[in-house]
Each structure stands twice: as structure tokens, then as C-alpha cells.
């Protein structure tokens, strides 16, 4: 890890560098909120954003994409032409960095996902510290995902003079041409950055879960009547999975195009909350009831995938799903329920 400072007056030169070398994605304002978008005009970038509607996952796993196009006469198939430049994701908050790491685990698990691996190849991830809680629904403190650096090639902490930049080992070379933008940090800047880190620890000190046992505790609630009761507040609309940084399920279908001359193999995000998600041949459905689908999502996020990938939880506590859910269902309340009576408060 190397520490650098990106002075305010060098930020625009650094953005120019990023745009020359990468397809730059960053948060911008849209419709009263914020979204990650490919940047045409650097002045539209909003690094003061609290959080985005969709997570930056969409840069590597788009909501809708064409995996292959098949010529219906020759039956030859080819993926869409590769992009000329890799993606740089700028301004990724710690919860989303953790989300991207989990996404990586799921998509790179053998057999790895070709389209994802190709979109992710050579990407530069630039994290951005959260100094304040983005919204009341966020529970990154409980999930211990409010601290960054892990998962980022560069990790920015805003300081008075610009940004403190932690450069991951091995990431220097991708910055070689931008070396002029950075300065060695001064002692005063170091003290300021340490102060900010202490403030961050104070801001995110509302831990409400015992993460060490969450995966086991949650599984024990499987037969509880709690889920049916919780499902009274669930539309089973899939909004929670749509905004989730760690939901990875998708559907693949073939769409004919161009007067049936080509067939596009299309992939789109799916959701285990939707009625047809677990429908199979013979008119059967593994999870026909709403509460079964809601429970399944919570189990995936709090237990199943955590165990599979040896993590405390798959959910990163970004707070998007409880903020979007009209029934105000939060994974935190389900996780807390499973630890009722022995939750650790720190």
C-alpha cells in the first residue's frame, strides 16, 4: 500500500487521464437521486453523493445484455464486439466495494461467467470513504462494511487539500502515466486523515448483530412463523433484489430480431422474489408462497452464500432494499430476529 495525495487542483487532470484510458463510470444526479453512469462530461460527476439507486454492479453485470448473437441461417454465433477500453469505476463507497468483492466471488466461481469476466477485465476500482451515514436504513455498521480500501485499486478519503489516496500494491503501474497528478502526503495531511478515520469509527458505531454466528442463527429460523408474518408486508415485487449489490441471479432467453434473421441470447437480472423464479416443468414451483420467497432471499443474503464463500454474511448492509421496500422490510430486522435476546451491542 502506498499513500499519496491528490490535490484539488489536480483532480480534473486525473479525470482526464481516467477518461483517456478507461470508460469512466461515476455517480451523477438523476431524477432527484443519484446513479452510476458512464461519464461524458466530467463536470457532471458528483462525489458528494450519498448513495445510488442501483449499485455499481451494473457496470459489469448490466440489467440487460446480449451474450451472443446467432445467425439463424448459418447458425453461427458470436458475442457482441468487445469494448475498446476497460471500465474505471470512480467513487465507490465501502459497502459497494464489499458488494463488488462478493459479486466477483459469485461470478468467478468455476465455471466462471465469461461475459462478466470480460467486462471486469482490466477494470480500475476507485473507492471513496464514507464520512457520514448515507441514509437511516443503511446498516453497514452492523455488517462491518463501512470501512473501505479492501477491494479498491485506489481508495480516496476526502481531506481539506483534496483526497488522501491509498494505492493498492500492484495498482501503481496502472497509474504510471498519471503520476504527475499525485503528491507525497505531508505530516499534517496524515494527521487530518487519521482524524477522519476516527470520526468514521464514531459515526458507524451502531453495531447490532453478532456476525460470527449470524449464518447459523438465521438458518435456525427456517421453520418459524416469523416469515409468514413478515411476508404480510411483502409485495414480492423484486425491488429489493433489483437494487441489491450482491444479488447475482439472472435469466437467459433467446429473442429473435431483424425479422427472425438473428437470435439474440439475452441475459437480464432475475429475482427470487418473483413468482415464476422457481417454476419448473410439470407446473411445479419450489417456492410458490410469498413468504418462502422472502425467506429464501434473506437466507441467501445472511446464511447460504455466506457459508459458501466463507464470509460472515453476503449482505453488505448498503440500505438500498429497506429504503426501496414499500413494506419497509429490512434484512437487518430479519437478522436481528434470528439473534433475539443475545444481540451484541458495542
Amino acid at each position: 500500500m502506498v499513500d499519496r495525495v491528490l490535490p484539488k487542483e489536480q483532480v480534473s487532470a486525473f479525470l482526464d487521464y481516467l477518461r483517456r484510458r478507461y470508460r469512466l463510470w461515476a455517480p451523477v444526479a438523476q431524477g432527484g437521486g443519484f446513479v452510476f453512469a458512464e461519464i461524458d462530461h466530467p463536470e457532471s460527476i458528483r462525489l458528494d453523493y450519498p448513495t445510488t439507486m442501483l449499485p455499481p454492479k451494473a457496470a459489469f453485470l448490466p440489467p440487460n445484455e446480449i451474450l451472443l448473437s446467432i445467425d439463424m441461417e448459418s447458425l453461427e454465433s458470436a458475442p457482441p464486439p468487445a469494448e475498446d477500453k476497460p471500465i474505471a469505476l470512480l467513487g465507490v463507497h465501502p459497502c459497494d466495494l464489499h458488494g463488488l468483492m462478493r459479486l466477483d466471488m459469485a461470478m468467478r466461481e468455476e465455471p466462471s461467467d465469461a461475459s462478466y469476466v470480460s467486462a471486469r477485465r482490466g477494470a480500475l476500482i476507485i473507492g471513496l470513504a464514507c464520512v457520514h451515514r448515507c441514509r437511516p436504513e443503511a446498516f453497514c455498521d452492523s455488517m462491518e462494511t463501512f470501512r473501505g480500501a479492501a477491494g479498491a485499486d485506489l481508495y480516496l478519503t476526502p481531506i481539506e487539500d483534496g483526497f488522501w489516496v491509498e494505492v493498492r500494491d500492484g495498482a501503481e503501474e496502472s497509474l504510471a502515466d498519471a503520476a504527475d497528478c499525485f503528491r507525497p502526503p505531508s505530516d499534517r495531511q496524515k494527521r487530518e486523515k487519521d482524524d477522519i478515520n476516527r470520526q468514521i469509527d464514531l459515526e458507524f458505531s451502531g453495531r447490532r448483530l453478532s456476525l460470527e454466528t449470524l449464518a447459523d442463527d438465521l438458518e435456525k429460523t427456517y421453520t418459524s412463523s416469523y416469515w409468514a408474518k413478515l411476508a404480510d408486508r411483502c409485495f414480492s415485487c423484486g425491488a429489493c433484489t433489483a437494487v441489491c449489490p450482491t444479488c447475482v441471479c439472472f435469466d437467459v432467453r433467446d429473442d429473435l430480431a431483424g425479422g427472425c434473421k438473428t437470435a439474440d441470447r439475452c441475459r437480464s437480472w432475475d429475482s427470487c422474489l418473483l413468482k415464476d423464479f422457481a417454476a419448473v416443468a410439470g407446473n411445479e414451483n419450489f417456492r410458490p408462497k410469498r413468504h418462502q420467497r422472502l425467506r429464501h432471499r434473506m437466507m441467501r443474503q445472511g446464511s447460504y452464500l455466506a457459508k459458501r464463500f466463507n464470509l460472515p454474511a453476503f449482505c453488505v448492509g448498503c440500505g438500498r432494499c429497506p429504503a426501496m421496500c414499500l413494506g419497509k422490510i429490512s434484512p437487518l430486522e430479519a437478522f436481528e430476529f434470528s439473534q433475539k435476546g443475545r444481540t451484541v451491542h458495542v
Binding site: L54, P63, F235, A242, V243, R253, D255, C260, M324, L326
Partner: peptide
Amino acid sequence: RFIFAAAVGAKLPDPAAPVCFECKLRQTAC
């Protein structure tokens, strides 16, 4: 899509997701 699918003898699946799901994918403020 329906017409092209029908032209080759296929049937389009009926969408099951409520409007909210696509609304989120479109990043429309609720």
C-alpha cells in the same frame, strides 16, 4: 418479440415481475 417468436413457432413467456421491478432497473425515483 411476440410476432417474431410466433413466426418460428415459439411462445413468449408471460412477464411475472410487477411494474416495481422494472421501475428499479430503470432507476426511476419511486
